[in-house]
Nucleic acid binder design. Structure first.
Length: 606
DNA sequence: GTAGGGTTAG
């Protein structure tokens, strides 16, 4: 008998299935034990799964289309196969095709797999359709089905009402039900509710699992509660879970997000095993607070032979963006290309941000133009880049273009466009955007947005209007609003309103030294030296020691970082050279420095 | 031969 005709693409088929196919077409041996070949449909289903696991989607589809008989398991394998390859829409189409076949009915496996596809499509409405079928088929008792349904509603609905209703109806809840509910609250930003459910799970049910601990730790991180996080860390050790890598990765992440970088560092060094997520978490943790350490940790990761991935590079690129070291960013970009990691949306967004912040708009634009798909972050990164470098009109054009492409702006996009309007002096346009944000996009203005609007009016000299706006705000203005107003008062010479703003900032944030310095300078500029000195005294008494502002400059591919009064040895000559060039540019631009403030700022060394 | 929850990027 010729077995070759049946064994297609031999190299792609696992040995076990190849043997089964051979046995299926060969005569069984005469001697015992008796051999029962598996039916061809079972073999084909095994092959289908194998194709999906290897990403051979076209081959899986061809095989499925050529199957003479397709039972419920074959259909379900297609649905879960497509979902495992993130092709949720195709999984849904297969499910609809199956429902049209009269000879096959979905089972619990089919319904839970289809619900996972609904979650992948973020479609609670399709999930509700499947929910109806679950009730009709009498499958509500299946924990797999109920949990999948709970997951769809918790992830895709506007609130947790539907998910809670499903959860309460589950009889004989297991730890998966609880973990799914906790994750639902936590992933939508309600970390306290997530922790509350976790507490109930422990106290009322006496249940816990590594999964539930991980998500509870994530909940602590989301509410920035290091106190709860430490308690959970202790409980994890008590439960013997400190050797679970995902659990410890979440602890590491929690310390980073709570700003306890020393605790994170200690945790990292004490971990007995580390994977790429461990390294990526620490690199991301350092990204904002200590970008140099972030880059250095990335270097150590490479030295230890671990392969950086898209997550790693997104964080390192963000760290480079914070430092605006273009040459370093270009080097890392080269490594990304070398590793074949081009085309990742988040990574491209990080690169746009880095190039835009470093002032290389041509490269930022090139990446943006070549992106196969763009999201809101891509557009916003370009807008922030243009806006922060004084190209307000270009940023506004980008916003308009984005809206034309039917990308719905969010709060951050409006912050970007309002800031751009502010810097470009487009006051009326900015006010119109603010009105559109509230009326067309239903976004409630928060203190930051009001701060942008106050800044917009204030920079244009409309200080009284800005003050009226502050007075009409639906909540108490925070220090950022008063800070923006203070800048306007300083710029357009409104000392009385400026002093009022300062008093407000001091009442809200009495420990910030710079506020006292600004007020002291206002008094000094007014010739009130006694009041000026009083503020300096008050600062030393009340405020915490101000961390010195650190500057960095890139010269011939070498980055130099320094603070005021720093002794940099021979490097100081390079810095002085750059300062001379800068002063020349400033003079050429006919800028007249405000010496009243300049002198006193220097006196304090800040 | 088919199904579940957790940790990393903007």
């Amino acid at each position: 008998m010729n077995a070759r005709k049946l064994v297609v693409s031999q190299t792609q088929i696992p040995q076990s299935i190849r043997n089964s196919l051979l046995y299926a077409v060969m005569e069984p041996p005469n001697s015992a034990p008796p051999f029962t070949p598996k039916p061809p449909s079972i073999l084909a289903t095994g092959l289908l799964k194998s194709y999906f696991e290897r990403g051979l989607i076209r081959e899986a589809r061809t095989l499925f289309d050529e199957m003479p008989e397709r039972d419920v398991v074959a259909w379900t394998t297609m649905i879960s196969g497509y979902t495992s390859c993130n092709l949720h829409g195709r999984a849904w189409v297969v499910f609809c095709g199956m429902m049209r076949c009269t000879d096959v009915r979905p089972n619990e496996f089919t319904l839970s797999s289809t619900l996972k596809a609904c979650k992948g499509m973020s479609s609670s409405s399709r999930g509700a359709l499947v929910h109806g079928l679950v009730v009709k088929q009498g499958m509500s008792a299946s924990l797999y089905v109920s949990n999948a349904l709970l997951d769809v509603y918790a992830t895709c609905c506007v609130n947790m009402d539907e998910a809670s209703a499903v959860f309460h109806e589950i009889r004989g809840k297991n730890d998966v039900c609880w973990t799914t509910l906790i994750a639902g609250y936590t992933h939508r930003g309600d970390g306290y509710m997530g922790l509350n459910v976790f507490r109930r799970m422990l106290l009322e049910e006496g249940k816990s699992s590594p999964f539930s601990f991980s998500i509870a730790v994530r909940a602590c991180a989301s509410v920035h509660s290091c106190t709860y996080g430490k308690q959970l860390h202790a409980a994890i050790v008590k439960h013997g879970l400190e050797f679970s890598l995902p659990v410890m990765n979440s602890i590491l992440d929690m310390y980073c997000r709570c700003g306890s970088l020393n605790a994170a560092k200690q945790c990292f060094h004490e971990m007995t095993q580390r994977d790429s997520i461990t390294w990526n978490t620490l690199i991301a943790g350092y990204e904002k607070s200590d970008p140099y350490e972030s880059i250095s940790t990335y270097s150590s990761m490479e030295s230890e032979g671990l392969s950086p991935n898209c997550f790693t590079f997104s964080s390192v690129i963000a760290a480079v963006a914070n430092l605006a070291i273009l040459s370093c960013g270009e080097q890392i970009h080269g490594r990304i290309i070398k590793r074949g990691l081009r085309g990742n949306l988040e990574l491209d967004n990080a690169l746009i941000d880095m190039y835009a912040k470093s002032g290389n708009f041509a490269s930022a634009r090139r990446i943006f133009d070549k992106m196969p798909t763009r999201n809101l972050v891509s557009w916003t990164s370009m807008m922030i880049g243009y806006g922060s470098h004084g190209y307000g009109n270009e940023a506004v054009d980008f916003f308009e273009e984005m809206v034309k492409f039917k990308v719905r702006p969010d709060r951050i996009a409006f912050v970007a466009v309002l800031n751009a309007c502010s810097h470009a002096g487009l006051v009326d346009k900015g006010v119109n955007y603010f009105i559109s944000m509230v009326s067309d996009y239903n976004i409630a203005p928060d203190p930051e947005i009001f701060g942008c609007l106050v800044d917009l009016l204030g920079r244009a000299g409309r200080v009284e209007e800005a003050f009226k706006l502050i007075e009409s705000m639906p909540f108490d203005p925070d220090e950022s609003v008063w800070g923006a107003f203070l800048g306007a008062c300083k710029e357009h010479n409104h000392p009385d309103l400026g002093k009022l703003a300062i008093r407000k900032v001091l009442a809200l944030k009495p420990k910030i030294a710079s506020t006292y310095v600004v007020l002291s300078n206002i008094y000094a500029a007014d010739g009130k030296w006694g009041d000026s000195a009083k503020m300096r005294k008050l600062m030393r008494w009340r405020a915490t020691k101000k961390e010195a502002g650190r500057s960095s400059v890139e010269i011939k591919n070498q980055n130099y970082s320094f603070v005021a009064g720093d002794k940099m040895g021979s490097h100081m000559d390079c810095v002085n050279e750059v300062v001379k060039i800068l002063v020349k540019h400033i003079r050429d631009a006919r800028y007249i420095p405000d010496l009243d403030f300049f002198i006193h700022d220097l006196e304090d060394g800040t």
